[in-house]
Design a protein around this nucleic acid. Sequence first.
DNA 1: GTCTATAGCTTGATAGAC
DNA 2: GTCTATCAAGCTATAGAC
Lengths: 188, 188
Amino acid sequence: MPVIKVFPQDVDRKLTEVFARFGYDGASMELLSQATGLKKASLYHRFPGGKKEMAKHVLLNIRAWFLDRVDAVIRDTSRPLDVRLEEALMAISDLFANGDRNCPLRMLSAGSESASFQESIAACFTILSDGFALVATENGLPEDIAKAKAMEAIINIQGSLVLSRAMNDNNIFRTSISAIPKLLGQGN
Amino acid sequence: MPVIKVFPQDVDRKLTEVFARFGYDGASMELLSQATGLKKASLYHRFPGGKKEMAKHVLLNIRAWFLDRVDAVIRDTSRPLDVRLEEALMAISDLFANGDRNCPLRMLSAGSESASFQESIAACFTILSDGFALVATENGLPEDIAKAKAMEAIINIQGSLVLSRAMNDNNIFRTSISAIPKLLGQGN
DNA sequence: GTCTATAGCTTGATAGAC
DNA sequence: GTCTATCAAGCTATAGAC
């Protein structure tokens, strides 16, 4: 008998994908089961709290992912600032499949259970915001301006992603991402 | 016996509200029934196509609303440009309850039936984009720049609304809205 | 740890009285 | 035009074998 048929990281990836595509209410246990390749009872074995726990688990993963691939990268002062920012932006693009996939944070931030996830979601955005603000500060911008520019960068990411999906044109997302270094004072 | 217990415009308003808050999959017939004050069978009488028809009806309303409150206002050249833009922006803020309500277009653009709504949603964004581009053009910006600035304005609206809801702070939305006139070349 | 089978509820949708 | 009552299908979640 197989001990583990599907690796946890693969399950996590698929769960994120389904929640990002259908949102919390649209992501049925049946869909989650098919996507992960685990039967419903097996999903309940791994996540006794059911769908809600799966969503929370996905959000914890994203938070860890942001800390590792954005926060840590940007704070690694042993490398040039522009390279660090570029790498963080590439990681972010990856998370959204270069504009082809909706933001799982946004998709879980609305719906019948949104209140349960609000804290985790806000925490993720704060990590991103602090990272961007640090870049802007290192680029010589005063702190209040840096914070405003950081928010603007996140607004551009989220807004361009919404429009890329709505207009079915991921160039909108790509263009916005490529404008962020300059927005944060890079190359001035 | 009452002929009409609830006015169509009130039903429309409530349907929009529920779809904006819960998305298509989260908006159950039970919720829609409670919000409108009409029993489920009555909703099916008004919308024989069921939930899908209600969502399409909501999108048609929003399109008409954009044509009336944004497009027509911006194209009314008998009035000063800054006043027209200001009025259009106030209408847009109204639609989103000044940042307290999610965008119904965005909420219907993702989920299990998103493909059915994509065309209607893109049409709404195009009306908005064309209107903003016209403002930028009248402000002396070259056409390609004007179009880019118009997209940027919509990105700011959508992105700031996502973040306002996620961070529970509608100042993010208000700030972005108030920056749009300058973005479109107003007051330069 | 994964499965089949199923419970119990909620869903979208319909029939028919008034 | 609105209602009560109901259906079949889908839902989340659980029981219990292996």
